[in-house]
């Protein structure tokens, strides 16, 4: 069973700058990612918004393997701040 923590987005710390809600799940980011990161940002950011904390922790290797290269961001039609969102998740994981 999936545990949901509605306050998770606030715990991530920077709810205002975490702009994943703009994502329309088009998949461009995954298609262009040089690391082939399928999970970021579409699914993982959605987990944060939904409060599925465990999924974020389970996928810490994915979060740290992002190059912060912004190839996804420069192609994203919704202007999601993907690299900054990834850094925000790293801060959360470091604090845990």
């Amino acid at each position: 069973m999936v545990q949901v923590n509605p306050g998770f987005i606030d715990q991530v710390g920077q709810a205002k700058t975490f702009n994943a809600a703009a994502c329309m799940n088009c998949g461009v980011c995954s298609a262009v990612c040089p690391m082939g990161i399928e999970l970021l940002p579409r699914k993982l950011f959605r987990y944060v918004l939904l409060g599925v904390e465990d999924k974020v922790r389970e996928n810490s290797a994915t979060i740290y393997s992002c190059l912060l290269c912004k190839m996804c961001e420069v192609n994203c039609p919704a202007g999601v701040h993907i690299a900054e969102n990834v850094r925000t998740l790293r801060y959360y994981l470091y604090k845990k």
């Binding site: 740290y64 393997s65 190059l67 290269c69 420069v74």
Partner: peptide, 13 residues
């Protein structure tokens, strides 16, 4: 649209 050299993954992977 440059492709990353992969260097940022160096310290962990």
């Amino acid at each position: 649209f440059t492709l990353c050299c992969g260097g940022p993954a160096e310290s962990l992977f």
